[in-house]
């Protein structure tokens, strides 16, 4: 099992770099830098992170080929790999629907997003291959239409955390029947703690609420969450996701979309994921909120590292 942390490009660059270094020191396998339209440009953050670290693998993504052309994404990787060596991973996916809309990219107006993504993946792969570069390309996915295309990628990063939902997603991809994709990972808003801190929980609530309200109706219906999210979704039509909207989302819904565990609970949870075939777990914001919260994650993981065999 490999473990990664999502670095937050909301932070000023020096803070991101300090966290990247700490993640490496703590023995994590990956840092992932997500490219959200409201945050610092991920390829530049990844470049600075690569310079200050030595061996930790760096994931670029999720990055949207609807905001950047496949050629631009391939060029980023070309420059990164050419400069720092082959320790990069790429994850592409549609991106944050709401944030993209605010910068003029309307995913709702596009036909057949999965086909667009497949085409983008092929173009990026081809461009890298032409330069003799290797980089795994993951699909960041949640809905069933997208999950069905996962077999064409090197791996799939599922935007789920509950074992029930992950199990369903794997069935859709065909992985459960022994098919591709060869690699399965999950990335989800996370808070692994030694000592519970309410302010961290608030950040977790907000991050997972974003994932929950953006989930497709079919997914929410399948897991009987559509009704519970209805009031919040209606409110979001006229206002941003703030604390008043957050109050409308039941805590159990939020926790379905997050990894919220004490250090003691973590090994059991990871064991469940491992049994499902998950080999990569990326602990996203707010786990990387501070050096302290990174340390709490590493402490929790050290209990697992002793229990589970590392797979290279």
């Amino acid at each position: 099992m490999k473990f990664g942390i999502g670095l937050n490009a909301n932070d000023p660059i020096p803070d991101v770099l300090a966290k990247g270094l700490e993640a490496e020191r703590l023995g994590l396998d990956y840092v992932w830098v997500s490219d959200l339209p409201s945050q610092r440009y991920a390829p530049v953050v990844a470049s600075a992170t690569a310079l200050t670290t030595h061996k930790i693998r760096i994931g670029l993504g999720l990055i949207s080929p609807f905001l950047h052309t496949p050629q631009q994404i391939a060029s980023c990787l070309n420059t990164l790999i050419g400069s720092y060596g082959g320790r990069f991973e790429l994850c592409i996916g549609p991106g944050d629907r709401e944030q993209l809309k605010r910068v003029g990219v309307d995913l709702d107006a596009l036909d057949n997003i999965p086909q667009h993504l497949l085409k983008a993946k092929k173009e990026i792969s081809q461009a890298l291959e032409n330069r003799g570069l290797e980089c795994r390309i993951w699909l960041g996915a949640q809905g069933s239409k997208l999950l069905k295309t996962a077999q064409s990628f090197d791996g799939v990063l599922l935007n789920y955390s509950s074992p029930e939902m992950i199990g369903w997603a794997l069935e859709v991809t065909g992985k459960a029947q022994g098919g591709k994709p060869s690699l399965v990972g999950v990335f989800a808003p996370s808070y692994i703690h030694r000592t519970f801190k309410p302010e961290m929980y608030k950040l977790l609530q907000l991050s997972s609420a974003i994932v929950a309200v953006e989930a497709s109706n079919s997914v929410l219906r399948r897991f009987s969450l559509l009704e519970a999210l209805g009031p919040a979704r209606r409110e979001l039509l006229s206002k941003p996701l703030d604390s008043s909207v957050l109050k409308l989302i039941p805590p159990e819904v939020v926790e379905k979309f997050s990894i919220f565990k004490s250090q003691d609970e973590l090994p059991t949870y990871i064991g469940e994921l491992e049994r499902l075939g998950v080999e990569h777990v990326v602990f996203s914001y707010p786990q990387g909120y501070s050096i302290e919260s990174l340390g709490e994650l590493a402490e929790g993981l050290s209990r697992i590292r002793g229990t589970y065999t590392q797979v290279d």
Binding site: R40, A48, V103
Partner: peptide, 17 residues
């Protein structure tokens, strides 16, 4: 050839470096 917000956030990151 780029979304203006991409230029904005890349420039900020470079300026912080």
């Amino acid at each position: 050839i780029r979304n203006v917000t991409t230029i904005a956030r890349a420039a900020i990151a470079l300026s912080e470096i």
